[in-house]
């Protein structure tokens, strides 16, 4: 299989930089897969899971959760600029459920101030839980 170089970076560090066969990316208008020679495209990301297929195109070698960001695909590489990227294996279901519950409680309170902020956080936490369920 033809490979291409994949880079996954978050503001704090470079998480991944290697040659892979395929990667699926949670684009804000739908998931899409990238293989070598993909047409150049720039998209935004929604909270979701990046699946990395290193050796061939049907075994997933790595899962990463991203809270958002940008993806740039050119003929020879794919660059993912992620916000808050973590390997799915490092997510903790119990802790996330607690967080989701706390956020929902906050939002249930009509006098609560930081509504937009908490709603955005809740979307991310729920997406993380979904990532674990999949």
């Amino acid at each position: 299989m033809k490979k291409f170089s994949l880079e996954l970076v978050s503001p704090e560090k470079l998480l991944l930089n290697k040659d892979v066969t395929m990667v699926t990316v949670p684009g804000s208008e739908g998931d899409y897969g990238v293989m070598a020679g993909h047409t150049p495209i720039i998209t935004t990301l929604r909270p979701g899971v990046i699946e990395v297929y290193e050796a061939d195109d049907h075994t997933v070698s790595d899962h990463f959760f991203v809270a958002g960001g940008f993806a740039e695909v050119t003929n020879e590489r794919c660059t993912l600029l992620a916000e808050d990227a973590v390997p799915v294996a490092k997510l903790d279901r119990a802790q996330l459920s607690d967080e989701a519950k706390a956020l929902r409680d906050d939002l249930a309170d009509p006098a609560f101030g930081g509504r937009a902020d908490s709603e955005a956080k809740l979307v991310i936490v729920q997406a993380k839980l979904e990532a674990l369920g999949a």
Binding site: P11, S28, I41, T44, F70, L81
Partner: peptide, 27 residues
């Protein structure tokens, strides 16, 4: 040479990436 495709359109990507870029410059 090859203009990339944009999804959603170029302007909404810019609207998102520019504040982000500002943050990273400051960082």
């Amino acid at each position: 040479a090859v203009a990339p495709e944009f999804e959603p359109d170029e302007e909404s990507i810019l609207a998102q990436i520019l504040p982000r870029n500002l943050a990273i410059q400051i960082y």
